[in-house]
Write a protein that binds this DNA or RNA. Sequence first.
DNA 1: CTACACCATGACGTGTACGTAAGACTGTAA
DNA 2: TTACAGTCTTACGTACACGTCATGGTGTAG
Lengths: 209, 209
Amino acid sequence: MPDHHRLPILPAAEAAPSLGADAAVSGSHVRSLDDVRARHDLMQIGDLARETGKTVRAIHLYEELGLLEPAARSKGGYRLYGSEALTRIRWIGKLQDMRFSLGDIQTIVREWERAGSAPDAMKRMREVYARKLEDTRQQRQRLEALEHELASSLDYLDTCNDVCEPQRLLSACNCCDLHEKSDEVPELVLGFRAAGAQPTLPRRGTRAP
Amino acid sequence: MPDHHRLPILPAAEAAPSLGADAAVSGSHVRSLDDVRARHDLMQIGDLARETGKTVRAIHLYEELGLLEPAARSKGGYRLYGSEALTRIRWIGKLQDMRFSLGDIQTIVREWERAGSAPDAMKRMREVYARKLEDTRQQRQRLEALEHELASSLDYLDTCNDVCEPQRLLSACNCCDLHEKSDEVPELVLGFRAAGAQPTLPRRGTRAP
DNA sequence: CTACACCATGACGTGTACGTAAGACTGTAA
DNA sequence: TTACAGTCTTACGTACACGTCATGGTGTAG
């Protein structure tokens, strides 16, 4: 067999130089292409998808947006990725968890790529992260507050289950005297009762959208 | 002036019975319609929008979805809301903050309206809230973790700014020896370097989407 | 009466992050 | 060689939570 049958790889750039052969190897079914690719630590898009939990489509999208590029292509045009792709995709996921949109990430990546020097790039990234730390903090505090509201609502609802007569009607809830007077009705509970359709007069045809 | 000039209100149901005249009154420009409506604690959709920070369109949407109904309509068809609408809309907002979609809220509201008795309804709602408390907790923990990652990334980037030579190139970052050996490169920083386009060989035309 | 801000209804548009399908090609095993 | 899963590009579809007209009526002041 001539050489080009073994594995025709067209590297997009020089292969990652100093990385040892310690890449993530999916422990499942081994095909012979894997054997060959393994010499270069390369996996194809489906493997990458499995490892990251993203779909192939999502990875395609990231590439369209310039967030990710395959390390190489097979002769037939298959995308081949090294283990840095895993890092990159997980990184994207984390930024998404922080509520960066893909557009934001695009901007970040472009800034990074256009940075003059290393400390310059680091400085820009520091700013982005510093701002995001602030509103991540705020978001978390909001969630904390909601958690407390949820907890006290559960408390309140427990009283309902404990002391309310089983046949009591919802309409009688507005003048309920079974809770401690000190118990303010939590807003999360109040909301159920306010301004909905009239449950006792169900004259609206159920128009499910 | 005949009576129907004063305020032709067609109540959708009996007005909220036991609520005192303590409704939220926007302290701004008072028009005479307000005067009249004030006797019934009613505001029109624009006022409601201002008070809640939502748009008129959003409120319309909530109504289409069955999440909210005006307490009454003016003779001319204007929607008129009591103060429970404020409660309701703020409630919707909180549920949205907990990552309930409007569709979820729709389901919740329908379940509530179809509940047989009061304790029955409370039980259902308790379950919904209990589940949500769980994943609100998880979400918050995720955010906490990200906060820590952000903080240590900022730390790491500070070192870059402090000890890196101003003209060092990004490509030299991969073999950077200026950090303590104990400093693992944070993933949030690693992500920048992995698998992007090649910054040193900018041969991709900037294809901004 | 007129001006003018506000509102109603209906319908179509928008941005995000993918999903889905079509039709053709690739890589490998049997 | 054939079968078959995986992949390619292209392109249109989707769900969500509204935004944005267009057209016409309403409520009140001057």
